[in-house]
Design a protein around this nucleic acid. Sequence first.
DNA 1: TGTTGTATGTTGTATGATGAATCTACTAAA
DNA 2: TTTAGTAGATTCATCATACAACATACAACA
Lengths: 239, 239
Amino acid sequence: MVDSKGLALGMRPKLGERVADQLRERIQKGDFAPGAQLPTESALVEQFGVSRTVIREAISSLRVDGLVKAHQGRGVFVCEDISQQPFRLCSKHLNEKDHIEQAMELRMCMEVSNVELAASRRTEADIKDMYAALDKQHAAHLAGELGQIEDFQFHLAVAAATKNSYIADFLRFLGPFIIPANAMQHMDQQKLPAYQESLRQEHLVIVEAIKEGNANAAGDGMRAHLRRGLQINSGERNV
Amino acid sequence: MVDSKGLALGMRPKLGERVADQLRERIQKGDFAPGAQLPTESALVEQFGVSRTVIREAISSLRVDGLVKAHQGRGVFVCEDISQQPFRLCSKHLNEKDHIEQAMELRMCMEVSNVELAASRRTEADIKDMYAALDKQHAAHLAGELGQIEDFQFHLAVAAATKNSYIADFLRFLGPFIIPANAMQHMDQQKLPAYQESLRQEHLVIVEAIKEGNANAAGDGMRAHLRRGLQINSGERNV
DNA sequence: TGTTGTATGTTGTATGATGAATCTACTAAA
DNA sequence: TTTAGTAGATTCATCATACAACATACAACA
């Protein structure tokens, strides 16, 4: 213990997180090699001057992150392969604009290839799902809504046609980063219907290409579709 | 409390994880809507019949996963946007073969598009980095090593040339899923040098295309390169 | 030699208490 | 009535302690 109030650490945010960050850092710096045992909880209690509750909270974080593995009766060990570490799009180091642009670009990379795969593997049911999503989006547009959710559902239907669950999962993961970036909500109300109609046409081009099994055309369509969305978002708000 | 031994839950793995899984399920099922408050710790203690320690451990997991946010003095709330949820390739539902294939395919989708971006944005320094990685790989081959790490370094250098940190991060994330899948370690020692030389040629084709800014050629080269790796891994072990 | 018991150390779980942040309801003043 | 302020209740954060479950090493024994 450092003092009666508590803290060798500063304590602004939760103590457990601060301890977790420090341990994470030491692990990634190689201070604790893969496979090595971390100091015991009681040792960490002394080192950090916090209670065992906090230490356990910190180690719990590292465990969820797949960085360490705890064994009852033995100790806590750094994972040999950190392959279980999750992927995050942390926007800490980037400003909002770059964050959205890079996330969109990541999505574009994925989807252009996806749609090519989808074109070679789609079934009749997949095509039907895509049209169904487009119909729902159209209905949303007619109802005066933006239809962003339905738009995304279409892209998910394309991803599903790849028959690769990881691809669909990844697009689902990217979803929340993309949807709020859509510039439609800032768009001139006058121009909205025309924009929505052009969206629909782009989508239809993509579906047709997938239906025909034309991977190149599908890829080109998707690239053009997303690139236009990217441009609208990045430079031309309120045009 | 259910009985003196402790368990309304079964308890084989850690109690905290079981509670966390149940809560996660209820959240994703919509039982607790986004923004809604979870039952208080003491309420959960009664519901699950476990101690506060376990409940807090479970909530800690959900917090690290970005599913909930705890506020001192107010309660624990389901996140409005779950956009902070990390992405994982969990192989639970897939057998090992499908897992590797789908992960490889995900990588292929990414890299084919990456390399096209890289071809349009690369600087002299990027090209230099790529050649440096290839040289190291060649040296490793000559030293009788597999050079898988160096191989991956080359691909990271390509990703870096996109100037999009998320793309590079994502490839780094995929790395551990890919590297152990490489079939080189199962390959006939006689054929290894020839295989390594062909790898080198494929890599060189890609670099040349990037250098010339030829996105199509770079994409084709990468696609061919990775597709061959996929085939070797999937069907032709120990040939 | 091979097996069993025991001691010790580690994480997992339970429990009670205190502190800090927040919310609610009530009171007092304008 | 409206507003500001205060007191109390609620809730999570942290601390401290104790015991249970498990792993390991080693001594005791057949």
